[in-house]
Design a protein around this nucleic acid. Structure first.
Length: 490
RNA sequence: GGCGGUAUCGUCUAGGGGACUAGGACGGAGCCCUCUCAAGGCUCAAACACGGGUUCGAAUCCCGUUACCGCUACCA
């Protein structure tokens, strides 16, 4: 008999955006399902009506789709299963593993406060479980509201966790917990177990903040006579200060990173390395490679700190990993959004565009970096960066003369290609007495061509700009320098 | 407080009794390359929380201590 195919689920509550911690949980669930030929399901836990929003649900879908973590069956909305949750709770009432509790919230709060005041830990004292049958029936008939509590049995509850090995809880430390509210709606643990059984989930993989829920859920499976799934509790993600990752750590939603110009593949890769290692010093991986290398034995027990610096580095790695065509598909919309070019303009000069991306991507860490660098190649007007001007155009008149000479030398060339440009410009440097310090020409020229102090290699820039635009910009720079001169010298 | 979990460079990690002078990566420092900035190459600094065991031998196994984290609702 071979092991049944694993069925896993990611079960976020739609009360905010898709958090990077949630994304990582989804990723490991997804990886496990793909690796072992199982299914990855998505369940939206929207039973908390007050906090759940449709907007959050949409954000979860969008985040998962962006990451390409697609689910294999129709989305399950927990809120649609309320009747089954209730029916399951009532089965427990019927089979005697649960009982009615008539204590009100106010009474409970009072007893809890009293216990705390005495520095005692509070645990429900089971007083309603001691009510005799007649009394219970009398109260029910009288319409006294009640919750349903699960009666936790003697003994200990343990399971063999996929990441933590054995975890054991003495049952005496767990109080008889409520499974159905006075209004008949189910409590989290009841809803989860009922749904996981119905969805035939056989591996529950979730954050380790759920460890203390697990013994309760195991008891519920037992009381319901259902087969237990296996459990895997993943460590948390912390911020740089060691605290649980939250809003004040800055960007925590996956959508934030999408808008920062992070590639989905890089995000996934980075998240995978937060709590998992394939060994052999392997770090940069595509999703397919992650599936191939995935092994739950490599899962870490320790919480990991989210380091944005390493994410950026990882993004740089993926920028060169994905290939220029795929990169273009991601950069083009960003270029359009920045008003630098339209899709059809890019299509019209496809080869030129791809060559430009190759030049820009090695000096970029994010898609945004590429867009920022792309200005001079798309805009007609360039702006001179004051810092670059101050550094490279120190002596206005001399620079103007030099650039004029560069203009003429370049204009005199028969063609427009890198080799002869270099010969021409280096010869000019020699002639001007710069010796082999051709940078003394390249640097001022760079400012004339791009307005910036940094750019790809100067000959690449000249090629990308083309003969006409290059010569026009050098010309414009010469005029700019001479105008400035005449204005400041009356 | 109770219960549970965790502990290797600043950070992510490799390591599953001898291969450890503890490896890789990010970040940092420096050098090389070089027309700038990147990329790339090379070098350096940087860790087994502490204390007891077990063992011929412990980063690795056991027990304590400490620290940190999580849970402790008629939230999920």
């Amino acid at each position: 008999m071979s092991a049944p195919a694993p069925r896993l689920r990611f079960a976020p509550s739609p009360t905010g955006y898709l958090h990077v911690g949630g994304a990582r949980t989804a990723l490991f669930n997804w990886l496990y399902a793909k690796k072992f030929g199982g299914q990855f399901l998505l369940r939206i836990e929207d039973t908390d009506k007050a906090r759940s929003t449709e907007e959050s649900t949409r954000a979860i879908f969008e985040g998962l789709e962006w990451l390409r973590l697609l689910w294999d069956e129709a989305v399950v909305y927990q809120g649609a299963n309320l009747e089954r949750h209730r029916a399951d709770a009532e089965r427990l009432l019927a089979n005697g593993t649960a009982y009615r509790c008539f204590c009100t919230q106010a009474e409970l709060a009072e007893r809890r406060a009293a216990a705390e005041a005495n520095k005692e830990s509070f645990k429900y004292d089971r007083r309603c479980d001691r009510l005799d049958r007649a009394e219970v029936e009398r109260r029910v008939a009288a319409g006294v509201p009640f919750t349903v509590r699960f009666r936790v049995p003697e003994g200990t509850t343990a399971w063999d966790d996929l990441v933590h090995d054995t975890i054991e809880f003495p049952n005496k430390d767990i109080e008889d917990f409520i499974i159905l509210r006075a209004d008949g709606t189910p409590i989290y643990n009841m809803a989860v177990v009922s749904d996981d059984i119905a969805m035939r989930i056989n591996l529950v993989m979730r954050g380790d903040d759920h460890i203390s829920n697990t013994p309760k859920q195991i008891m519920l499976y037992d009381a319901l006579g259902a087969e237990l799934p296996r459990f895997a509790h993943l460590p948390m993600i912390h911020g740089l200060d060691g605290k649980k990752l939250s809003k004040r750590h800055g960007a925590t939603a996956v959508g934030d990173y999408q808008h920062l110009g992070i590639l989905p593949g890089a995000m996934l890769n980075f998240l995978a390395l937060l709590g998992w290692s394939p060994g052999n010093d392997i770090e940069v991986m595509t999703l397919d490679q992650m599936v191939a290398l995935f092994d739950p034995a490599g899962l870490q027990k320790k919480a990991a700190v989210f380091d944005p610096k390493k994410l950026e580095w990882m993004n740089g790695q993926h920028l060169s990993l994905i290939g220029t065509a795929e990169l273009a598909a991601i950069v083009s919309p960003a270029l359009e959004a920045a008003g630098l070019a339209t899709g059809s303009q890019l299509d019209a000069r496809r080869a030129w565009y791809l060559a430009l991306l190759d030049l820009l991507k090695v000096r970029a860490r994010t898609v945004d970096d590429i867009v920022r660098q792309a200005g001079p190649y798309f805009r007609d007007e360039i702006a001179y960066d004051p810092e670059a001007v101050a550094k490279q155009w120190k002596d206005g008149p001399a620079t103007a003369d030099l650039l004029a000479a560069v203009h003429d030398a370049l204009a005199a060339m028969p063609g427009w290609e890198s080799g002869t440009m270099e010969e021409t410009l280096r010869a000019l440097a020699e002639q001007r007495g710069f010796g082999d310090k051709a940078g003394k020409i390249f640097q001022p020229l760079r400012v004339a061509l791009t307005g910036l102090g940094v750019s790809p290699g100067i000959f690449d820039v000249l090629i990308m700009l083309g003969r006409d635009r290059s010569l026009a910009r050098i010309d414009a720079a010469v005029r700019h320098l001479r105008d400035a001169q005449s204005v400041s010298t009356p």
